[in-house]
Design a protein around this nucleic acid. Structure first.
Lengths: 203, 203
DNA sequence: AATTTATGTCACCAATTAGTGATATGCAAG
DNA sequence: CTTGCATATCACTAATTGGTGACATAAATT
């Protein structure tokens, strides 16, 4: 008892539980205090308000670490390695996102509002993708393919399917409540990258 | 004064204004009544509650009509017409979505919760896309390209970029606060479809 | 042991929410 | 003019929200 750090941790954990259950937009001081089994005044005393608390929560979650690892894993030396490496990257992104409800909530939060936390997350991702594209630029010279732009469509497509599948069973005929729908999506990602690789490495 | 239909219309219009300004998730009885300059009890009397009111609002907006028109415009007879028709379709979808804040809000709403209205919208889109793919299936025989799956990535990618651009200026290097970023996206959509068309019509 | 400090609880405030019963008012028919 | 009805307003309740000051208690310092 009477352990400040432990209490702080209880509060931060409560944030995680609520986000996993209800998402970011419905989070509030009262709900957090109740979930943590702690008086809400402590949130003000120890964190200085909801914003700072959420900030500490996000920084504690290793979402950022995961992102970095996935980006670093991309390694390209030729056509075949381009296909394998980028396909792996996008499919891993899809599978991880599907499995990680908290990550889904953060991405959804980024669509809902702009605040100190979503800004910070966006900055980190921005920096990582810049590094990735520099690496790709070294591997691929003189192509008319706009890699960042293509990446955005793919990543956006992936994120949108996952977020949408939470409330809708199927989209344009693809059944996301069966694994087969997701398999078709993965196959199409693979095929797309293979087709694009043909254009990039045509000479 | 004292015109029931006019009052109902004032209420429905207030819904539109609030959604355009704050989106669906923050909408409430009190805010609507205030915006309409009308007592909130009339919302219960005339519509039977928030849900029914939102339902009437959505049905009155011609979002559905617009969707239908865009889907019907797709017409394919060969490779060149496939490229032109589908590229036009997706780019029109992108531009329309960018220009239509209310449509953005509805799409966002579909990501946030499942209710009678989002279900209805999803059903309509589901039916339209089914018809579209049947049309495409007639035009394109014996291909290993999974058209619905590809469509989902493209549409999802488009929607995600637009929704994201509302709070973030750039994504993976693409600047969405300048028209040039959107142009690059459109160019990439065009290139992607052209490349896929080569595969579909290779024989 | 006594006192100070850190930690935690309680009771309240003002604002806002969804929802409802009683009441007032404009209008049209008698 | 007056009665009756549709239309609209008012005034309230109960619950919930974010936020704060006063108080209690455990632990550490003297």
């Amino acid at each position: 008892m009477r352990d400040k750090e432990e209490t702080k941790q209880k509060i931060i954990n409560a944030v995680g539980k609520i986000i996993e259950k209800d998402g970011f937009d419905k989070i509030g001081i009262n709900a957090i205090a109740k979930k943590a089994g702690v008086d809400k005044v402590l949130i003000y005393r120890y964190f200085g308000g909801l914003d700072n608390l959420l900030n500490e929560y996000v920084m504690q979650e290793d979402l950022v670490k995961r992102l970095i690892e996935e980006f670093k894993a991309v390694d390209i030396v030729g056509k075949e390695s381009f296909i394998k490496s980028t396909t792996d990257f996008y499919i891993k992104e899809l599978r991880d996102l599907r499995a990680n409800k908290k990550y889904q909530e953060i991405l959804l939060w980024e669509l809902l509002e702009k605040n100190s936390i979503t800004i910070k997350i966006a900055e980190i991702r921005e920096q990582l993708s810049t590094e990735l594209f520099e690496k790709l630029n070294c591997a691929i010279k003189n192509t008319n393919i706009d890699i960042p732009s293509l990446n955005n469509i793919l990543i956006g497509g992936i994120i949108y399917q996952v977020l949408r599948s939470r409330h809708v069973d199927q989209f344009a005929g693809l059944k996301y409540n069966h694994e087969s729908g997701w398999q078709r999506l993965e196959d199409t990602i693979h095929l797309l990258i293979k087709t694009i690789a043909e254009v990039i490495f045509k000479n």
